[in-house]
Amino acid sequence: MSGAAERLPLGRAEPADDAAQLHEVSQFLYREARLQDEHQYESWEKLWEDDGIYWVPANGEDPDPDTGMSIIYDNRSRIALRVRQLLTGKRHSQEPRSRLRRLVSNIELLRLGEREIEVGANVMVFESNQRGDTIWASRNEYVLRRHDGSFRMARKKVVLVNNEKALYTLSFLI
């Protein structure tokens, strides 16, 4: 994060007044959501930077992922492994695949840098599978980098509202 270029300090609630940029970011997040909902694993993987971190913490909003258990804490090679596992067709918990639709809302640009944008959003996912129907809700935070007129994800953090409780299997892409 290049400090000099920051217009908003991290965590400040006031969103950047930049309608065009907000629109671009929103379109990117909607696209990511659709690729996940429709199990387009390879296209989804292409949204990641080479140093991407995909983090779904457990037990609170901001635990230390280096000392405590996380539900997912994937570096880029582990993201690739997750995708390759899904592509085998033998990932039983996703065969048949969960039917999914998610809403991405309350999108805010939290920090604008020269190369990176930090974004916050609220997400609700409806999952239907053999077990039944499950609703997942989360606060998501993204670090996006500009590439060729679009973005890639350097970081995606998904804080499930109920991550302190026992959760059913979460083998689709959250």
Binding site: M69, Y168, T169
Partner: peptide
């Protein structure tokens, strides 16, 4: 390291 809780 804290626990993950997995419900079935």
């Amino acid at each position: 390291a804290g626990f993950l809780q997995h419900r079935v």
